[in-house]
Nucleic acid binder design. Structure first.
Lengths: 185, 185
DNA sequence: GTCTATAAGGCGATAGAC
DNA sequence: GTCTATCGCCTTATAGAC
């Protein structure tokens, strides 16, 4: 049980969420975790290793996030549950960006370093699965459309500091999903 | 005519586009502009001032970009022209991000510094104007939907290093616009 | 106006006492 | 395992010769 290591990863995840990975210094992480700076290097040889650990932690968060969606009864309810779950985090996402999308996009800017694109591919795979179950044609393209709509809304709302814009757009997204995909009985 | 100053802004804009504003150092900009480092400070007192100049340059680029769209005959053609213009820049946008969106979102992460959200509000205003001319209800919300769709597609495609995804999504976006907004005669 | 040299401070990373 | 002290480098910014 590497309790101290987990504390550091949790602290690093918070600081990175607030400031971005590039602007996150190990001194800030150490202060957030209430650990002396030098101690960080006992658990992580480099800053890059710490960022990789944060990516793994975010991946686990996303798994739990999607598992919550999967707990709903129908594919349509599952998709709407995920949209609503993003919507319920609106204030945080608009203030500092999406904990999955902001990290995934930022880390792709540095070629050699760690990647977090799995945070997008996991969501696409999960959404595609739900759409396939609904017999929606071009399920992969529709998954891309939905993920891009969510991420784009977050990006625009974040830059404009407009949480209401994000909530409205995600509400419309869930409404459109229900309209199009509800099986008339 | 501050020729040297314009060279520096152009060089800074290129470096920021490639690496992001935070990772851009004045040494890199000076090298890109083939100017000694110390000389940068004759034209810009601080790095922040240089970034502000880059934002103004991008704003002018966006104005020209939207003016090109405005040159088309009908509002529908104008909207599609902008979508197509983004699409024609796909390789660059997928490799390093949107020159407008990436800058706008990154600069909002640092509170005290310069802002580039005008790059989003200009696009929203322009799109809203076209949609209004087409008598589309909830024109502002539809403008947000379109801008978010473009920016989200760029973000996802960038993180996944998948230019084809971006081109497909923007092609679908233009097709959907034509389908919904074409006036049957 | 242009350029060289360098200051001042923050960063990742290490050494070594405890 | 934990912590203090510090190294070496890079960054922004300045001083001052030309």
């Amino acid at each position: 049980m590497a309790k101290r290591g987990e504390q550091l990863v949790a602290a690093a995840s918070r600081v990175i969420h607030e400031r971005g990975a590039a602007a996150t210094t190990l001194a800030l992480v150490a202060a957030e975790a209430k650990v002396p700076l030098g101690n960080v290097y006992y658990y992580f040889k480099t800053k890059e290793e710490l960022v990789e650990a944060v990516v793994r932690a975010r991946t686990a968060e996303l798994e739990a996030f999607l598992a919550y969606g999967s707990s709903k009864a129908t594919p349509l309810e599952r998709l709407c549950a995920i949209v609503d779950a993003f919507r319920s985090r609106a204030d945080d996402m608009v203030r500092v960006g999406c904990p999955f999308g902001a990290l995934a996009s930022e880390l792709e800017k540095t070629e050699g370093g760690p990647s977090a694109r799995i945070l997008f591919s996991m969501q696409l795979d999960w959404m595609e699965g739900q759409l396939r179950e609904l017999r929606v044609p071009a399920a992969r393209a529709r998954a891309v459309e939905l993920l891009a709509a969510i991420q784009g809304a977050c990006l625009v709302a974040h830059a404009l500091h407009d949480a209401a814009l994000f909530k409205r757009r995600l509400g419309d997204l869930a409404r459109d999903l229900r309209r199009e995909l509800t099986t008339e009985s």
